[in-house]
Nucleic acid binder design. Structure first.
Lengths: 150, 150
DNA sequence: CTATAAATAGTAATAATTCTTATTAAGGAA
DNA sequence: TTCCTTAATAAGAATTATTACTATTTATAG
């Protein structure tokens, strides 16, 4: 299955999710979701807005923010913890972590090796009901390290 | 050693750090640091500002933000990844994780059991130079769970 | 095809944080 | 101690990301 097919599958999934939750399937929703889903760069709202504007020149900033929030509620995308000024979004729902470059703000996906398992600290359960666990690694990415030595 | 002594030690440490880095020791810096260091609530800038204002009525918002940023550069405090609209600060430098309640926004410290170790995913090193690793657990805290059932 | 309510566009407003500038004060030197 | 230099501050304006408001449009059920 190629990436275009995967994307189409995801869009079908989104349509189902909308219907199941009494939400309408609008071209804006599709386009906005597409932009997040096809990117591996964990785009922010502004980036999504600029990209969508090429196909839908009248789309409004508000729609992008509102839609990203509803896609999140549908569990079709999620926000990446990042300590950066702008929220970043990810449509890859497979469990994975992030490497965040503190210099260029790039966010890289870290997939665990088959023998690794996302660990929940033993004590965590004593604080309440866990919804999700999130691991970020902050550092300087190879690209920036290379540029820095020049 | 009681908590007051611990706090005093930390303040001495801050003074040293300032001197070593050519930064002046100002009463504002001391007070702002104290507020973060004595709290276990991971306060935001506004909370720190309100608290400091009791002792220094003329302190400005800007000074609080600027000082929190320089304390961070001195590695005396750090920001908690939190996906909340306001930055939260922590002066406890011992390695630990956080439980973040998505309902009341309370941030709880999770200390690892002696036999646990903060694990860095194997792949992480391939992305660049790691500065720090951060684990957050999001969920609903016991307090909120209790309130919700009422 | 029509009715209706959800979603949108356009724009104004808000919230958190940062910047600007004139003033103050920490800390080294005389 | 007193003076000097410059970092740090207070006050308020500005900026940035995000959210709210409202009239209009449009998805979809009947």
């Amino acid at each position: 299955m190629n990436s275009e097919q995967l994307l189409n599958n995801k869009i079908e999934e989104l349509k189902e999710a909308c219907k199941k939750n009494g939400m309408r399937v609008t071209p804006q929703r599709i386009e906005i979701f597409k932009e997040v889903a096809k990117s591996c760069k964990h785009p922010d709202a502004e980036t999504v807005y600029e990209a969508v504007k090429h196909k839908m020149p009248n789309v409004s900033v508000d729609t992008v923010y509102r839609t990203l929030a509803s896609l999140e509620e549908l569990n079709m995308i999620f926000r990446v913890d990042n300590l950066l000024p702008k929220a970043r979004f990810d449509a890859d729902l497979r469990p994975h972590n992030h490497f965040i470059c503190v210099q260029c703000n790039e966010v890289y996906d870290i997939f665990l090796e088959p023998d690794e398992k996302k660990q929940i600290p033993k004590n965590a359960h004593s604080f309440g009901e866990i919804k999700d666990i999130n691991i970020q690694i902050r550092g300087i990415c190879n690209k920036c390290l290379k540029n820095n030595t020049k």
